[in-house]
Amino acid sequence: MKILFLDQSGKPGGAELCLIDIAKPYQDTCLVGLFADGSFRSLLEENHIPVQILTTQAIQVRKESSLITGLGSIGQLLPLIVKVAQLARKYDCIYANTQKALVVGAIASFLSRRPLVYHLHDILSSEHFSQTNRRIAVTAANRFASLVIANSQASKIAFLEAGGRADITEIVYNGFNPKNYQTDKFAVNQIREKLELNGKFVVGHFSRLAPWKGQHILLEALAQCPEQVTAILVGDALFGEQDYVQQLHRLVTTLKLENRVKFLGFRSDIPQLMTACDLVAHTSTAPEPFGRVIVEAMLCGKPVVAAASGGAMELIEHGINGFLATPGKPQELAQVITACLNNSHETAAIANRGQTVASQRFDVDNINKQIAQLLSRLGTKA
């Protein structure tokens, strides 16, 4: 099958990393069209996946945008829609991987008479999107998509509650290659030594720095943990969230955690850094659509404590393959961290179970087979 993939981002987030795995089996016949240039293009090229930058003009619509802003962007989108429609005639289907890609892909699907697939990586709720953007996404999917792939039960439920069609919606979890999370022990030891983590109980947080990702919750919990507990924050701000980064630094000073918190920024050695941790914390204050970091930590053989909402509830059984804590409750998170510190044998057993379950349940080959089966049912509109 020849697929035209569409994605709005020039930077690799969870949806983009997922797209790389989905596109790989089709790399000889597919094209990934991006609405912005950046490091994501380089990643696609490194994986030998054909890529083309379809526009260099930023689309002035964000998740919280109003109807007026949305209408104002239509003129800007028209040249892009025409270009996508022309390209799509060379392919069997259009695969929209993000919400802006859905809007462009929906109209291009109509013009080119090619079926549209929408991969839903978001929870379409008021916590994440404006009412206007939710309505646009649901209307575009209902009217033009032949298939909506939701990345979790939580994402599907939110889509249906927003008015989405159940008859075109299927759940397929993100896929992972377990081999990518096998690390060299020497390299991991070097990281711990370089970051001066030896003798510490290291809690890692892996996410962009944003209020709803809840790094402040981890810092507040850390202040209630024994002195040997240290945190590393891997990631940086996107989308104009630098004020939050300053807020986090002020919180570190206020809580007197200067010697117990390290801001590492964006890093490419995520498996090595995760393996260098004793525990990985997921602290989102709003429901997470899936929780890619949770599975990655499991595959690294590390115990995970996650906020008990959204997709995380589908990934973790508390006390079996990980831990759950009430979102936005630093004291409860501190109790879990301290329990892991004090019960290393039991925590290691839980981490081992998590690794086994994740390796089987989210194996990328099995996930890609599920997607291929769904795509094979698409009827060509041409």
Rank of each mutant, 00 (worst) to 15 (best):
F5C: 02
L6Q: 06
K11D: 05
P12V: 10
G14L: 12
E16Y: 03
I20Y: 05
D21P: 01
K24V: 14
P25T: 14
T29R: 08
V32L: 01
G33F: 01
L34K: 07
G38A: 07
S42P: 00
E45D: 08
P50D: 11
V51A: 10
I53H: 02
L54W: 01
V61E: 01
S65M: 04
S66A: 03
S73C: 05
I74D: 00
I74Y: 01
P79W: 10
V82D: 08
L87T: 07
K90N: 14
Y91F: 15
A96V: 09
K100H: 04
S109H: 05
S112C: 03
R113D: 09
R113S: 13
L116A: 07
L120S: 09
D122W: 07
D122N: 14
S126M: 02
R135N: 10
I136G: 00
A141I: 12
N142L: 08
F144T: 14
F144P: 00
A145S: 15
S146G: 15
N151G: 11
Q153L: 13
A154C: 09
K156F: 03
T169A: 08
E170M: 07
F176S: 08
N177D: 15
T183Q: 03
R192M: 06
E196Y: 00
N198L: 13
G199E: 11
V203N: 03
V203R: 01
G204N: 01
F206Y: 07
L209P: 01
A210F: 03
E220T: 09
L222E: 06
Q228G: 00
A237W: 07
A237V: 13
F239G: 12
G240W: 09
D243E: 15
V245I: 08
L248R: 02
L248I: 03
V252G: 00
L257S: 05
L264G: 01
G265L: 09
F266C: 02
R267L: 11
S268K: 13
D269Q: 06
I270V: 14
T275Q: 06
H282E: 11
T283W: 02
S284W: 08
T285E: 10
P289K: 02
P289F: 11
F290T: 12
A297S: 12
L299Y: 10
L299H: 11
N321F: 05
G322L: 12
T326M: 10
T326L: 11
G328P: 02
G328K: 03
K329I: 06
L333N: 02
Q335W: 01
I337V: 13
S344R: 15
Q360K: 15
R361T: 14
F362M: 13
F362E: 12
I367R: 14
I371A: 08
G379R: 11
G379F: 04
A382C: 08
